[in-house]
Amino acid sequence: MAGPVSGQRAVMRRRQNAFRWAVVTVALLFFGAPLFGMLEFTTRDASGHRTAATWSQLADLGTISQRYPDLSAGLVASLWLAVLTVVMMLVLLVPTMTWVRLRLPGLSRTVEFLCLLPLTVPAIVLVVGLTPVYAWVTYLLNGSAVWLCFAYVVLVLPYAYRALDAGLRAIDVRTLSEAARSLGAGWGTVMARVILPNLRTAVLSAAFLTVALTLGEFTIANLFSRTNLQVAMYLLGKSDAQISVAVGLAALLFAIAILFAMSFVGGQRDTVSPLSRLRRHRQEPT
């Protein structure tokens, strides 16, 4: 871009800038209106004046758990679900995907297919199929909401697989593990102290996707009548809408802030579509 810009090019650049700002402004108005609607709704009192009562109530966690036990129970259940789902997802996927890479490359197609299969199964269909399975879960464990984590692991499988697959592709798993093994490390050490630290970014992004999906899940929890955060918000929305809307807005803004902050950390996120990534992976010479 050195040197003077020619007249024609400058006109084009100006036109592009004007176009960009017009489109972005319209988009932000569309995206912003419902968010503003939520804010406006939660700062309204019975007589139509502005008040911050709902938000100060929300900041006071003690009263929340007293006045809205279901909401705090739902929040606690959702947090447990997030933790359990992340742990189970990592325990299931990381060793399997590493092992497939090292020893059983013939199985990589099968694992990939199984992991991407949930993309074609809508959550509502999964509910239908999981009903008998969850009858057993309730029988063997109990009817607590935290056992929804089994279903959530299936839901996040494609997204987690993609993130971890990208991470594994970026490191030389074979050399790393052989080096560790020749220095006397067992497989447990290789996993915990060599593979996982090298996959830090991938594990982080898989975990973030998992947490986001878990905290926002409604379909499965609602149809299995278990109270997680979203179901609690839905039920509370019928009696005390303001606090419920405030919780929703807070969660949403929190998620946007986290994602925005994450875009400054770490490298540029690879946003190529999952299938093209997978295909490119296959073309790699081995």
Binding site: M38, G216, Q230, Y234, L252
Partner: peptide
Amino acid sequence: QFGGVTLAFAFLAT
């Protein structure tokens, strides 16, 4: 990814 309850609330409030 923002579906469900919060989205319904947002549009009801608007």
